[in-house]
Amino acid sequence: MSNDDYTLAELCITASAEVWRDDGEVLATGIGVIPRLAASLAKASFNQDLMMTDGEAYLVTEPVPPGPRNGYEIQVEAWMPYRRVFENLWSGKRHAMVGPTQIDRYGQANISCIGDYASPKAMLLGVRGFPGNTIHHPNSFFIPNHGVRVFVEKCDMVSSVGNDPAAWGPGMRRDFVDLRRVVSNLGVFDFQGPDGSMRLISVHPESSVDEVRENTGFELTVADDCGVTAVPTSDQLQLIRETLDPNNQRANVFPS
């Protein structure tokens, strides 16, 4: 199989999988199709020690393909009901990749609401587990629609902690906060900019630093060695297409 016919979704999956490369034996939680397939790819290739769930309450020995099961039976290894998820994440044994509606330069993110808090213009989910996740274990973010309304100067409701020094009061413990990567449809970012702010570390082959800058609502820091995002290998494409996502759920992420 040649690797010159990959899709943007497949590129985002392989770029996102990298966030779990060196994590060892932790719960890999990918919320949404791309993060879930990225965790699946990491587990099925370079980090087989990762733990994953079936999306409900079971830990499974192999990633569960998203979408219809078509006779597939999950391979259970242990139990992970929500109560244990809380215990797991408060103890730090997890790395989640989530999809916020807004994110600022310090990685503070919003899934609660847009607009005035008393009567929001758009109520979303609520803060869910964002505050607890981000103050206790590593987190990464996937954003399929890189734009100035997502990469914002200031979140309407800060649902998860970030590296903004001004957000932290005396005596609060920040050393478990570990923001790793942001993968968007345009590029890949870490948090090694000034004061732990977001920094562009690679642009996807079809994008450019200028395009990223124009679509980012805060001043963009670019790494000195910012390069081009690695494209999927043919082995990775085969694994994604034949084993991890046989229902092609990834095709729905970026509607053409």
Binding site: Y117, V127, H136, V158
Partner: peptide, 21 residues
């Protein structure tokens, strides 16, 4: 006690929830 909620708008939008040392 918990760390959860600190340094987010959960803390700022719920001023009735206090901190403790």
């Amino acid at each position: 006690p918990t760390r959860v909620g600190l340094a987010t708008d959960v803390q700022r939008s719920n001023p009735e929830i206090k901190t403790i040392q």
